[in-house]
C-alpha cells in the first residue's frame, strides 16, 4: 500500500503545474492520513535527491514541485527561446524590505530606501510578487503591502520563515560596532 501511495503522489506532482502541498494531496486521497502523505513526500524528495537527475523535487511555498537543476538553465532557456527572468536591483531591494518587514506601508519602505518607490511597487504588484494586504487606520488610509505565494515560488522559498534570519545579521552589525559609535563620538576631537 505504501508503495502505491508513493507512486500516486509522484504522478500528481508530475502532472501538476504548481507546488502541491500535503494538505491538498490529502484532499484528493482522503483515505491516507496527512502524516503518511507528509512522510511519503519526504521519502520521494530524498529519492529524487539521491538519483542524481537533472531535476529534483523541491519544497516550495508550502508544497512540493519538480524543478530542473540550475546547471541546466542555459539549455532550457534555449528551448523556451526566452531570456532569463530579471528583476532590477531597485526591485530586489524593495522586495527584500517588504519580505522582512511586512505588513508594511509605502512610507516606511521609502524611509528605508530614501527614494520614491511608487513605480517599483506598481511593477511588483503587476508581476504578482506583491499584494495589498489592506489599509492602515491612519490619516489617508495608506495601503499595506506584503509578498505573495508567487514570491515564494520565484525565490525558491518553503515559506516566509525560511528567509535568512534578519535579526541575527542585524545584531551582529549593531552589537559589535555599536560601541564604536559612542567611543568615536567621545574621541573625535580632531573633527570638532
Amino acid at each position: 500500500m505504501s508503495k502505491s501511495l508513493k507512486l500516486i503522489i509522484e504522478a500528481l506532482l508530475f502532472a501538476s503545474d504548481r507546488p502541491l502541498g500535503a494538505r491538498e494531496i490529502h484532499g484528493l486521497l482522503s483515505d491516507d492520513s496527512l502524516s503518511s502523505i507528509n512522510e511519503t513526500l519526504k521519502e520521494l524528495q530524498a529519492e529524487y535527491d539521491s538519483m542524481g537527475r537533472s531535476f529534483t523535487l523541491k519544497e516550495i511555498a508550502q508544497g512540493y514541485q519538480f524543478r530542473t537543476q540550475a546547471e541546466y538553465a542555459p539549455y532550457v532557456l534555449r528551448m523556451l527561446k526566452t531570456s532569463p527572468a530579471r528583476l532590477s536591483r531597485a526591485a530586489l531591494e524593495t522586495l527584500a524590505i517588504i519580505a522582512y518587514k511586512q505588513p508594511i506601508l509605502r512610507q516606511e519602505i521609502e524611509r528605508l530606501r530614501g527614494v520614491d518607490v511608487g513605480g517599483i511597487l506598481r511593477t511588483l504588484l503587476e508581476k504578482n510578487l506583491l499584494r495589498i494586504m489592506g489599509r492602515r487606520d491612519l490619516p489617508g488610509r495608506p495601503l499595506i503591502y506584503g509578498t505573495t505565494k508567487k514570491f515564494l515560488e520565484v525565490f525558491d522559498l518553503k515559506s516566509l520563515e525560511s528567509l535568512p534570519r534578519l535579526k541575527e545579521i542585524k545584531d551582529l552589525g549593531s552589537d559589535e560596532k555599536g560601541n564604536e559609535i559612542t567611543e568615536e563620538a567621545g574621541g573625535s576631537s580632531e573633527q570638532s
Partner: peptide
C-alpha cells in the same frame, strides 16, 4: 535559484 532564470518547472 530563481524560477525561470535558474530553475524551471
Amino acid at each position: 535559484e530563481l524560477l525561470d532564470r535558474d530553475v524551471f518547472t
